[in-house]
Nucleic acid binder design. Structure first.
Ligand code: FES
Ligand code: FES
Lengths: 135, 135
DNA sequence: TTATAATGATACTAAAATAGTATCATTAAA
DNA sequence: TTTAATGATACTATTTTAGTATCATTATAA
């Protein structure tokens, strides 16, 4: 089946929504274990995902006791396109290849032109889906 | 990298465009070897793709000498969504899963709702990209 | 009527992307 | 100084994508 979000992205978004909610209520760090309990995601995997979000500056993290994660910015400034970019690369559907080399028709190809504009539209719509709009 | 069309779909579309052009000029069957010469696609793979298009009634085929393929319908009635469906399944981005089981939030999930409407939009746009519009 | 030139069906291998786990290192607080 | 947390990293498994090969069938033409 086709998918726009891979599992990594999907799980990351769910975790971010949860972190956003908790932080709002209590203004503190949220731990991996809390998220695992609430969302039933595989722990080892979730750790990897949150570490990536932290490296990408979407999350702040704190080590040691009382450590955990919190959103590093306003949930209105975090959108699905950003998260996809982290786990799947940029939203770009135009990948016409011929035996792993760029296809020579690229410049003039009408399929490519149409797919490109569609791709841009999708990206712009995904940028409108912010964490705030999901909470 | 993300992709909307896999290689199968991409090659199939190129082949269909070529078949459409040739058939218009000469009203005859086009063989795999002609397409291979013109488009430089791998022969064994192209055979498999055209056989699938034939099974799906997009192409007519003729066996034996003078055999080959031709479009089975008006190029205005063949669109990219159809071709994607054959090689990749239907255009549907909403596949939220939890350890391979459908995610329990599906009914109420706002992410899913937004992705669903985006997915429908993309499909409707892809349906507008017909073979005729590319020739 | 038979050689030939075409597709049909099908089975197979290879490579890449996705999905998921495990472990040791580091750090901050109690 | 123990403990509870994340950081870094290496690893395996599964699924999807990509691609090849071969024998069967059939229509034409010599
Ligand atoms: S055929 Fe390659 S860009 Fe369109
Ligand atoms: S979290 Fe599964 S449908 Fe949204």
């Amino acid at each position: 089946m086709m998918k726009l979000l891979t599992r990594d992205t999907d799980y990351a978004v769910r975790a971010l929504i949860f972190i956003g909610k908790e932080a709002k209520r209590e203004n503190r760090m949220v731990t991996v274990d809390e998220i695992v309990r609430a969302l039933k995601l595989p722990r080892a995997l979730l750790r990897k995902l949150l570490q990536a979000l932290s490296k990408s500056k979407i999350l702040n993290s704190g080590k040691g006791k009382r450590g955990g994660f919190s959103l590093s910015k306003d949930p209105r400034k975090i959108n699905i396109s950003d998260i996809i970019t982290i786990f799947q690369g940029p939203v770009d559907f135009t990948n016409c290849l011929l035996r792993n080399a760029p296809c020579p028709n690229r410049k003039i190809c009408r399929v490519r032109k149409k797919i490109l504009s569609l791709s841009r539209y999708v990206d712009s719509e995904l940028k409108k889906i912010t964490l705030a709009s999901l909470t």
